[in-house]
Structure formats: C-alpha cells, structure tokens
Amino acid sequence: MKQFIIKGIIFACLILSIITFILVCYGGYVDYFYEKFTTPKAKSFILGDSRSLQGIQPAVIDNYFNKKFASPILNYSFTIAQISYGPLYSESIKRKLDNSGNDGLYILIVHPWILSTREGDDEEKGIFFEKNKPPHNMKFVDHSPNFEYFFRNLGYFHFRSIFRKTSKLHKDGWLEESNLPKNKMILENWTSNQIKLYSGYSKQWIKSTYRLKSLDSLINFLNPLGTVCIVRMPVCREILEIEENYWNDFDKDISHIAEKQDVQYFNFRKDTCVYNFYDGNHVDKFSGKEFTQALCDSIKIINRVKSDFNTKPEIGSLTIKTEP
C-alpha cells in the first residue's frame, strides 16, 4: 500500500510539474482566457466579447495615452458564448478591479447580442446561461499559475496549440489571432458561417431590458473611477443588417444610457468598409491596431474638449467617421 501511495504521489507531482511548466511558459497559447486570471488587478479595462477581445489592443491604448489614464489597461473581454452584461460579469469585473484611483479608462463594447436574453435564461429568477463559465466561475483572478482556472475550466484548454501557436493571448488580455483566411474562398466561407450563426441568434434570442439595466448599473459603478466610454465596433454589412433588423432602436437605447450616465457613446457601426474582417465579425489583428488607434483619437478628442473647456461635451451618441 505504501509503495502504491508513494508512486501515486510521485506520478501526480510529475504531472503537476508538467502542467505548471506549460501554464507558466505557454499559458497564452494553450487557452484563450487563462492569462487574464494571472495578471494583477487592473485600474483600466476593455470589456466586451470576442469583437473587443481580438479587435482592441491594450498596448496601443497605453502607448497612445502615455499614462494619462491608469495603465496598463487590461482587455477583460471574453466571447459571446460566455458573457453578456449582467450581474455575473459585473461581479467578475469588480473582482479584477483595483479601485484605488479615479484615473481609470473603461471601454465597454456593446452590440445587440451582448445585451440579449437567451433560451433558458430567466434573469429575474437569477438563471443565467453564463453562470458556470469563466470568468464567472473564478474566485481567484490574479494568481500565477492559476490552478483554479485550470481545474475549473479544463475543457477550455487546447494544449496542442503549443505546437501550432496560431493564437496568443497576451498578458494584457488581447487575443492575437494569426490564423487568418488564406484565400477569398475561406474568407467567404467563414463570413457565411458567422452570418448563419447571428441569423440563428436573431431568431432565438430576444433583446433584454434586464441586461440593459445591468449595463447601466455597471457604468454607474465605474463612472466615479475614471472615464467610461461605450463603443460599438464595426462588423460586415450583412451582420450589421441582421443586428439592425433584430434590434432596430439599439443605438437609441444605448444613447439613452450614455446620456443618463453622462458618458460618451462611440458608434463605429457604419465603418463596415473601413476595416478588414477575417470572418465578417472580427477585425483582423492589423485592422485591430488601426481601429484601436481610431478609438483612441475619439477618446482623446472628447477628453480634450472636456479638459480645455472644463465643460461637458454634448453628451450622447457620436458616430465616428474614419476614412477608408
């Protein structure tokens, strides 16, 4: 028996060492979210789903503002399969938040899907689709190596990516996707899959006033801690059309929240032809850099207006036009 236990412990230690080595050295390659839970708490955030996870690059923002806001800014975006604005996401943000200052920058990505009710959800009763998924199932969000994430979300890991290294989650939370379509046919195929996906969502999901209220409360919470801005990222024309049909007065609803909370709404939805999308839904990493730059320009303009005149700019929706 003793021999069995000793050998079992040695084997378990060996396995644990291998896993620890991989998590520490290749954590960004083997999981799309793991690294987000290994960095210290942050004062500035990018919040949203995969559009911002891949499309907004924290390094560009930090570089652009050069410590005007609390840095480093953390991209704490996930995917539409895991998050939606609601009490669970808000709680997770609060866990990851260092609320010791008031110079943070909070970029909140919005679009109809991230504010929808899905099948099986009963928000008033506290039933949310995202309940047992990361980041909501995480208590420890700033430990490295983070074994809690490993044990709770083993199914999310894809260890063989160590060899391929096609996507990398940077320490700042940005997911760099290098697996881009190699030709037009693949691009069309991926785009058509996304269109199918969102057209399916438009039939199954419904717009949620509960989630809108949650977004409103989150902004209300973040507002005293720095500058909050709401951003609608561009997507391809076909997906935009689905979104418009699904939630026609979406911009009006968001503008209403922005006005109420005295924050800016940067609406890039019309920039369907300005950026390159690798699947119609996500800007590729090159366009992502340009988009982040454009977003910084917009934030800077508003901030300058604020500081120059020490008055509030006209609150509400601001549609940004960027030249192709």
Binding site: I19, G155, Y156, F159, I162
Partner: peptide
Amino acid sequence: RWLIYLFVFGLILFFGASS
C-alpha cells in the same frame, strides 16, 4: 513503464479534445 504512462498522459493532454 513510467515513460509509457507519461507518453499516454501526454497524448491525453496534447491531443485530447474538449470533454
């Protein structure tokens, strides 16, 4: 024997699909 165990474990780790 242990190398074989580690090899099988490695296959599970690197080639296993989502549960």
